[in-house]
């Protein structure tokens, strides 16, 4: 471990970290926005569910590097374009969250939905004020898995030349310099822990009823 490499390269490390955060978290947000309506459809419609859920499982089996590489051919982007990584990770996030959302919505007690309807909620309003909030705990659990795995996966982008902390791995490997790799690993794990912790806190904050329940 060459400790003094770190202060000498703070700019490089800081820059890589910023890129990493952006590349990892945009897909989480985009994935959530897409997954909620899709998951709602799947929870409503058995046929949709029968297509989405297996499709999502198949998506998992495709290696991320393969997706990073094949996407440019489909999107018409440059192979080095970070957009490839963002789109690929968004696809993974949607695949993971659709199932969470569908399961969470299906688990909302029918009585609660019936009561809301009886009180005069229209379906759209009822979804936003009743069903979605009750699905939040499961949604948060899905988001945590998606965020942590995205943070780890972004580093693979380095193999196709996309920035982020993964660059510390390819560079460190080519220069036979373990320190750089260790710094990358530590930062990625720390970043994952911080984001995970923030999601837990956010979940507690927006579901106060879960805290009071015995």
């Amino acid at each position: 471990m060459v400790w003094d490499w770190i202060p000498r390269n703070t700019a490089l490390i800081w820059g890589a970290l910023q890129v990493h955060v952006v590349l990892a978290l945009i897909p989480v947000v985009a994935g959530l926005v897409l997954a909620v309506p899709l998951g709602w459809l799947a929870s409503r419609n058995g046929a949709v569910r029968a297509v989405f859920i297996p499709a999502a499982s198949v998506l998992y089996t495709i290696p991320s590097l393969a997706v990073f590489i094949v996407l440019p051919a489909i999107l018409g982007t440059q192979i080095l374009d970070p957009l490839n990584v963002v789109v690929a990770l968004t696809i993974y996030t949607v695949a993971l969250l659709v199932r969470s959302v569908a399961d969470a919505l299906a688990a909302v007690p029918a009585l609660v939905v019936a009561a809301a309807t009886a009180m005069g909620y229209k379906p759209g309003r009822r979804f936003v004020s009743v069903e979605l909030p009750l699905a939040v705990p499961v949604l948060i659990a899905g988001l945590r898995v998606a965020a942590v795995s995205n943070i780890s996966l972004v580093s693979v982008g380095a193999l196709i030349g996309v920035g982020g902390l993964g660059q510390l791995f390819t560079e460190g490997y080519q220069r036979d310099f373990p320190t750089e790799i260790i710094v990358g690993i530590v930062l990625i794990v720390l970043l994952a822990l911080v984001v995970d912790g923030l999601l837990v806190l956010a979940g507690r904050f927006i579901t106060p009823w879960a805290r009071v329940a015995a």
Binding site: S64, A66, Y92, S100, A141, V156, A214
Partner: peptide
């Protein structure tokens, strides 16, 4: 405890966790 968010899931994350 009620905060079931403090649990880990066995959900497989994207299997393509690297190349």
């Amino acid at each position: 405890s009620p905060d079931s968010t403090d649990t880990t899931t066995a959900t497989p994350e994207p299997a393509g966790a690297t190349p």
